[in-house]
Design a protein around this nucleic acid. Structure first.
Lengths: 248, 248
DNA sequence: GGACTTTTAATTGTCATACAATTCTTGACA
DNA sequence: TGTCAAGAATTGTATGACAATTAAAAGTCC
């Protein structure tokens, strides 16, 4: 049974700003449409020739877009069949680009809640791992990151410093399979930025919590590091809940 | 400073079994060489024309391979520059294909240790989440999965049933950002298979531990579910340590 | 001589066309 | 009815050409 997608909207999604390569723009458009549910897992996408018409592009560009989506686990292609959407469990949702598409194609509040839930699940363990390994170079990077947060201007510089802290922590955990979560953390911090600007009255408290985590890691106390990270994340979530409803 | 890779080995890596598409074979070969450290982050890869010679393939196939690697976060391409290897933190190591390459290109014992560490970090939290959400459909899938394990023949069928259990658990956690970890679990179970075959005397105990997890989830007890999962993973790791040295 | 601008050249990005390989569908045939 | 062969639709690969990008080199002016 070939579930042919009905009337595969002959109109490309709204073009995006910036000068991206043609094929990645096409990939993004198709990816967002899949994420939005326009094409369900198991269904067959339009074939290459149709995509060429839809996006007024050459087969080369369309094929590269499809290859990109294939590499991210969204679809598989077979001769004579076409491209079929893979089950959601196969999608590489931790991919940076995919997270970006996802954020564009989802309800912002719900998506932020999902990312924060993932962080609560993983980052305390990350902190504990970092405390148990405690390599010198990584600790120095963490200390520098906290110092960077202290001296950063409010606004985007602070967000970047915060991100550097969490990425340093991820590196300190010393398990490269966890690295892809950096993209989730980055996504979460950028989203949280919308809630904490233009001013962040909680800043001194937040800074201290970051310091506490580093202290626990230096002390080599995994349990304490885990607990401190849990506290930080809970505090962050409170900001969301208080500000919620104030979506811009 | 353009770090041109020296004498980029004009010989393709050993071809792999099975009839894969040409471009994905090339992607795999280049990907493994990057994972193996032959091309370091920051360095410039050979250009498309050179790859064409190296693999005796057309530019079309080579470009699709490069697009694939780009989509997985390994490289970026810019005109006049070429393709540069991205920092390791950008690599999508949770991707199914990449895990496969990784396993081929790494020390097996070390790689298994890394995957198990990641599992210990994440799966207890997964179990806890599943217990806190506890949706009917997911519980039924879990129960069926345990039943599948009970009735499966030893060997590969049991591995598949085990995998289904952990995938069901992942689904029950109800956070799609965690889905990519299914690939890590799958990779770990297939590797563990090498240690537990041809017979698994621990099987009855392992089955009970899986049941205990489901029971805790049905009871809606996140703490208990987490603890039971921790126990299961610890037990698994003991198998490794006892059998270690017995790599086939 | 030094800072700025223009030209050049190397590389990837896109297009167009043709053919090969795969595999579903259909029809012939026993 | 079941099996096998021919056909057709779709993706995979090859080839050649040109456009776009941009680092590097060559001029140019002060």
């Amino acid at each position: 049974m070939t579930i042919k997608s009905p009337k595969a909207a002959l109109v490309p999604a709204a073009p995006h700003k910036g000068k991206t390569k043609l094929h990645s723009g096409i990939a993004r458009s198709i990816g967002e449409r899949i994420l939005a549910g326009e094409f369900s897992p198991g269904s067959i996408l339009p074939n290459e020739a149709e995509w060429c018409q839809i996006y007024s592009a050459s087969r080369t560009a369309v094929r590269e877009a499809i290859k990109l989506l294939t590499a991210k686990g969204f679809i598989t292609s077979r001769a004579k069949i076409g491209s079929r959407v893979e089950p959601r469990a196969r999608w590489n949702l931790l991919d940076r680009e995919v997270l970006e598409w996802h954020r564009s194609a989802s309800d912002r509040i719900a998506f932020l809640a999902t990312t924060q839930e993932a962080r609560r699940l993983i980052e305390p363990g990350i902190a504990a791992l970092a405390a148990s390994k405690r390599s010198q170079a990584h600790i120095e990077r963490l200390v520098a990151a906290v110092e960077g947060m202290r001296t950063a201007k409010l606004g985007k510089p602070l967000v970047m410093a915060d991100l550097e802290f969490h990425e340093a922590l991820l590196a300190a955990a010393g398990n490269e399979l966890l690295a892809p979560f950096g993209a989730v953390i980055a996504s979460a911090l950028f989203q949280l930025f919308d809630y904490t600007t233009p001013r962040n009255p909680r800043f001194p408290a937040a800074l201290k919590m970051h310091e506490d985590i580093v202290r626990a890691i230096i002390a080599g106390d995994p349990g304490e590091a885990r607990k401190r990270m849990q506290r930080l994340l809970e505090d962050t979530d409170q900001i969301i809940h208080k500000t919620s409803g104030g979506k811009h």
